[in-house]
Nucleic acid binder design. Structure first.
Length: 293
DNA sequence: AAAGCGGGGGC
DNA sequence: GCCCCAGCTTT
């Protein structure tokens, strides 16, 4: 949950998740849709599928006790494997997250692009060379905490930093400009319409295809094109939503669907059921706008 | 090696 | 509006 997601954003999800799945075994036997429903709104949903796969592997074969075995679990990369290996097992692996990359870039006063693999590997090797092999878990958490509380992205607090005397960027006055991160894909603006079709207290939802690149299996509100013969009524308003580099402006319209056969991939959903299915955040926002949620 | 993947909070 | 977050997987 913490991969690329702030701690404060994770906590409520984490608590609900552990209440429902208190053990690896409980998670291992879960349905994917229920896991995704609990993850809905947190983003990066492949993390949830990966966690489920990893739980099944662990339930079957036990928890790996070294970096290599951890690294082989779904959703566990170099950082996560190092974090677990060092914090849980005391093994000497530097855990290099975004915070640590920033600390290294500044201490070394290195303006290489941390978005590319060469510098990332180099910075990782530097962090590894700094590691206190007697206390790898404490060292890693101290490095990350330094980045999270002192060596801040925009506003480095060099005045209270224990590394200031050793920091080349502080000496050169370049700390606030580091690290360098280039290459952002150009944003794309998209306008789209979502329909809120209601019938006897329920709302028509559309399931995203299994082959969809983003959020397969999630439930969305339909667009007019998804419902042959749909008619749009009054507007509930508009809202903006950004997914990676796509900037959507959604207009939410009340709609009516022809009586009879349900369009393929669609279902009626009562408000009580919204909690139990993987609901997209755009659908969630639109339903709130329409007063359904 | 680079692109894609969610969503929210801080500035 | 842009940046960044206890990154990973796929192309």
């Amino acid at each position: 949950m913490l991969q690329q997601t702030r701690v404060e954003a994770v906590i409520p999800y984490y608590e609900r998740f552990l209440e429902r799945f208190p053990t690896v075994q409980a998670l291992a036997v879960a349905e994917e849709d229920e896991v995704l429903a609990l993850w809905s709104g947190l983003g990066y949903y492949s993390r949830a599928r990966n966690l489920l796969h990893a739980a099944r592997a662990i339930a079957a074969g036990g928890l790996p006790r070294n970096h290599e075995g951890l690294r082989a679990l779904a959703g566990v990369g170099d950082y996560t494997a190092a974090a677990i290996a060092s914090i849980a097992f005391g093994l000497p692996h530097a855990a290099v997250d975004g915070n640590v990359l920033r600390v290294v870039a500044r201490v070394e006063n290195d303006a290489s692009d941390i978005g590319t693999s060469g510098p990332r590997r180099r910075f990782g090797e530097i962090a590894q060379s700094w590691l206190d092999v007697r206390h790898p878990g404490l060292f890693n958490q101290a490095m990350m905490e330094l980045g999270a509380t002192v060596c801040l992205p925009k506003d480095p607090r060099c005045g209270v930093c224990p590394l200031a005397a050793a920091c080349r960027a502080h000496r050169e006055g370049t700390a606030a400009q580091l690290p360098v991160k280039l290459r952002k894909t150009a944003p794309v603006a998209i306008e789209a319409v979502l329909l809120v079709v209601r019938n006897r207290g329920r709302v028509l939802l559309r399931r995203r295809e299994d082959s969809a690149r983003r959020m397969p299996g999630f439930w969305d509100l339909p667009a007019p094109a998804d419902i042959p013969g749909a008619r749009a009524g009054k507007s509930h308003g508009t809202f903006r939503h950004t997914i990676t580099h796509y900037h959507y402006t959604f207009t939410v319209l009340a709609g009516t669907a022809p009586r009879g056969l349900l369009p393929a991939g669609c279902r009626w959903c009562s408000s009580a059921q919204f909690q139990e299915i993987p609901l997209s955040t755009t659908a969630c926002k639109a339903l709130k706008l329409a007063g359904v949620l």
